[in-house]
Amino acid sequence: MFKDSLERLGLYAQAVINSIGLMMMMLISSAMLLLTPPIKVRNMFKQMEFVGIESLFVVILTGSFTGMVLALQSFNALKRFGAESMVGPTVALSMARELGPVLAGLMVTGRAGSAMATELGTMRVTEQIDALSTMGINPVKYLVVPRIVAGILMFPILTIITDFVGVIGGWFVGVKLLGINSGVYIGRTIDFVTIEDVATGLYKSLVFGLIMTLVACYNGFYTTGGAKGVGRAATTSVVTASVMILVSDYLLSTVLG
């Protein structure tokens, strides 16, 4: 019984290490393929549209409501110290350093990550990926590289947008609903929030974009087991990428300060 579960744990660990290895290989070959012509510009734009443009609505919605609730909560807390004027910087700093990149990352992972894994997984189980190979097309170059590039480029842009609408949402609640002076709100925000704060969030989002697309592509690309396998690839991608985003967020916060 004990030996049994130990053995299973061993097998599980082996599988995890195995897939980390394969994922790293996929990343390395993607990086090399990115630089070998011909470059698949059209595929990249298509993926950028899918990851970026089509995520706009959801990140605007999450960003603005998060900014609003942040303003509300920090107002309640800061009021006790008579520091209502600090609501603006609190909202902006939280958005720029943490919530912008993390929320955008998680929302886009839920939306685009599962779709990417499903699409590649379906292509795998219906032999479309094999068909690409038989035509002398490297499927990693054709399918994976454009998605990773799109993730790395679009996540920071989505993050900026999330930050921005969050700050607007915070301003709306703070100024229009809670009665903080608009000049004070904006002035304080500008005083306290630096370019570095925003940059920190953007660095993070670059990493999150890489994580999301790599995890989704890896799971989709190596799907086995028919329709069920495709479903599993989608779920695994979202869960794995979300956890990895949160863990790496902590690590990056430690490193970037």
Binding site: T126, Q128, D130, A131, T134, G136
Partner: peptide, 24 residues
């Protein structure tokens, strides 16, 4: 290797049993 194989494959045409048409 994959790269060499891709060159060789340009001499081939293949029909899959399942068709394997690109559905996109």
């Amino acid at each position: 290797k994959e790269r060499e194989l891709n060159e060789v494959r340009k001499r081939f045409g293949m029909l899959f049993q399942s068709g394997a048409l690109f559905d996109s």
